[in-house]
Computed example of a mutant assay.
Amino acid sequence: MKTLTFKTNIKCGGCLAKVTPVLNEEKAIENWKVDLEAADRVLTVETNKLSGNDVRRLVLKAGFEAHEVG
């Protein structure tokens, strides 16, 4: 299992509600979370199959930006 980390523009619960169905629908994602308390609104994704670009495209599909960090 690899953990991918992204800085996002997901800022609130409403934003989270928009991205949740898109990320939950992706079967290759084992677990994910967004830290709304962090200044960078960090998205953490656990997956064995997806690349950072794959996750970035999923977040973009929901209308948000994600930039991989680390």
Rank of each mutant, 00 (worst) to 15 (best):
I10E: 00
A17N: 14
N31A: 13
L60K: 15
T3N: 13
V22N: 05
T47E: 06
A17F: 06
E26P: 05
L50F: 08
L43R: 00
K49N: 09
K11H: 14
G63D: 07
V34K: 00
N9Q: 13
E30C: 04
H67S: 13
E68I: 10
P21E: 02
E30W: 07
V55G: 08
K33W: 00
T47Y: 05
A28T: 07
A62G: 07
E26A: 09
R57T: 11
E25A: 13
K33L: 00
R56A: 14
N53G: 12
N48C: 02
L60F: 11
F6R: 02
G70Y: 13
A38T: 06
E30F: 08
V45G: 07
T8I: 09
K33G: 07
D35Q: 05
V34A: 04
E68L: 10
T44R: 15
K2I: 08
E65N: 15
L4R: 04
F6A: 05
C12V: 09
C15L: 01
A28Q: 11
H67K: 15
W32V: 00
K49H: 05
A66I: 10
F64H: 03
T3R: 14
L16W: 01
C15R: 03
E37D: 12
F64R: 03
G14R: 10
K49G: 05
V55D: 09
L23P: 05
K7M: 03
E25Y: 04
A17L: 07
F64A: 01
N24G: 08
L16C: 01
L16N: 02
L16D: 01
I29G: 10
K7N: 11
P21A: 03
D40L: 08
I29C: 10
T47V: 03
E26Q: 12
